[in-house]
Nucleic acid binder design. Structure first.
Lengths: 350, 350
DNA sequence: TTGTATGCGTTATCAG
DNA sequence: CTGATAACGCATACAA
């Protein structure tokens, strides 16, 4: 492959001139610019960005480390990150990992020299020191951390507020015995949603009952399997808060198959407002979160932090929004827990 | 930040020795290895991989360029790519783009020096020369190209076969007037599915009728909006093949809201087998595709091509699988159009 | 306006 | 087994 030297030789100029042309230096004559561009095109010269960043110390690339998600939430976060990064002409190095904070630091290390900073979803509170270490090497913005940190900025989703508002809504609809399907252990989102549920109950003077808290894993199969557990509870709950929409839809489908009416016999609520939540029957009352906005905001925060005098310790929380549909009875009114953030969606494919 | 020189100086050895330690050279004494590791840890030394790849000419990174998808298909492909790459200790640079082949080559160029090869989903047949150009710089594997190429390998999904099998199934169920909801113009998947539908009809001696071909955009809103168009067709179709599940579910939901029974009045079929396809009511007859496998296979193909004597022009097609559920009537039997490929799914999060 | 020379952080080659 | 030194491809002070 042609290097800058090949182009310089072939064009009869110095490498410095070629470099200047490629960096848009105003010092170069129009005619030499033309010449260099022509030769470069002929040799099919592609500048080596690794070599460039070695000397400039900038890679125009952000590292992204996410757990191994596999649903809309994941792709929306990525889209948000990618769009916001692209708007600044930055690229993305992506890595998934599996719940281990040692793996997290290994990924960060392996990105050294190839990224200017990192957007990461930390696995759990145990990774706090790891994050502190990483952020000594480059600016980090955390997505939805489950812990407090003064080492870097973070952008979170209002899991707690959303779950609390939703539970309160169920109570207002007249439901008394509200069960919850929890998410996987040690999952930050799952823990916060559980906390919101418990606090809403205790606010209303309802004792939280361990037998009403059932373990799920955030997949629709788990919602389906849990159906039997729900129906076994005595006295039977009159509402179930499944802590994500996939489980809610799996559960609702199984209940209907058992002849249980939703919402008349049991109300069902979910969380996330996935794109199909309004299209199941009955349509799902849930909490809308802005995954796209989460990713986009994290990137914008990173740029703010990296600028002169960047704070590097901003903690932002994106609002969650109660979306009342038909699966819980009550009136069908969209309620906004906080201001709604619009996001720049775009067209798609299969 | 500490460099290899800092570590060498502090440890009283040469940079070559430090380098040898980090590259696992067997030539280094146990004691010096210990010493170097100790000093490196104390200085918090992270090797700069850009500098390393400048001389080794290897980045252990694959570029991934995908259109701006926003659903399960996208995240499954990424997961497949990431897992297969990680198994070889490779990383991923990800970029989304918007339908423009000039944008495609710009991304490829900007990755020069930072990747060893590329996995790309080409926008359309017009990008064939662009792909040819790129593959002169590093090995490329194409995902689902809509065109023939001898410049690189490709892995595709059997859109045509799947659509044809599905349409044949609708005919076998006794449906005569089968409408189709097409995907966006110039979309490769959409075109192939349409072709399969048309060929299945003509195989059965049914004239394809332009008024039965309705334009959609692969989003559930479009399925919903199209409901009115479907009901306006005279005589009314007795089945609708929506070329992806999102549109099928949107349409089904709208039809039910209009009091049209599915499948008694109109049968509905989809494509993709998204995770919720079995959980809507009635459950959706569709065609299952293996997006995870598509990504994983592309990466494996890339490694095969890059090895000694790699062919670099292999064309693979992943089978599509007819999945008969309840939305089209007929018997509920899972039929396999070709052998079923298992894929290594793993646990997840919100 | 252009060329020369140096260095970014690492690995590879060759002596020792 | 270890060290000195020349690359890798590029950008940038400085000189011309």
């Amino acid at each position: 492959m042609a290097t800058i030297r090949d182009v310089a030789r072939e064009a009869g100029v110095s490498t410095a001139t070629v470099s200047r042309v490629y960096n848009g230096s105003s010092l170069v004559t129009e005619s030499t610019t033309q010449l260099v561009m022509e030769v470069a095109a002929r040799l099919d010269y592609w500048p080596n960005s690794a070599a460039r960043s070695l000397i400039t110390n900038r890679t125009y690339t952000l590292g992204v480390v996410l757990p191994d998600l596999f649903n809309e939430f994941f792709s929306e976060i990525i889209r948000g990150i990618d769009h916001a990064a692209r708007a600044r002409r930055y690229q993305i190095i992506l890595s998934c990992f599996h719940d281990d904070s040692r793996e997290l630091i290994a990924m960060a290390k392996s990105m050294r020299g190839r990224i200017d900073g990192l957007i990461a979803m930390a696995p759990d509170a145990g990774s706090a020191k790891v994050i502190a270490n990483i952020s000594r090497h480059f600016p980090v913005v955390l997505l939805n951390p489950g812990f407090q940190t003064k080492d870097c900025s973070a952008v979170s989703i209002a899991n707690y507020d959303g779950a609390r508002a939703l539970t309160r809504h169920l109570l207002e609809c007249g439901h008394q015995r509200i069960a919850i399907v929890k998410g996987p252990a040690r999952n930050v989102d799952a823990e916060e949603r559980l906390r919101g549920y418990r606090d809403a109950l205790s606010d209303a003077g309802v004792n939280s009952d361990p037998s009403m808290e059932i373990l799920g894993d955030f997949r629709q199969e788990s919602g389906e399997q849990i159906c039997a557990d729900i129906l076994r509870i005595r006295p039977r709950p009159d509402a179930v808060f499944a802590t994500n929409d996939y489980m809610a839809i799996g559960l609702q489908s199984a209940l209907l198959a058992h002849g249980v009416r939703v919402p008349e016999d049991i109300a069902i609520a979910g969380f996330d407002d996935i794109s199909l939540a309004g299209y199941v029957n009955p349509s799902l009352t849930t909490v809308g979160i802005d995954a796209y906005g989460l990713g986009a905001k994290a990137v914008r925060r990173w740029f703010s932090d990296s600028g002169a005098g960047g704070a590097r310790t901003q903690q932002e929380i994106l609002p969650a929004r109660l979306i009342v549909r038909h699966s819980c009875g009550g009136s069908r009114i969209d309620r906004i827990s906080e201001e709604h953030q619009s996001n720049e969606q775009s067209g798609g494919s299969s």
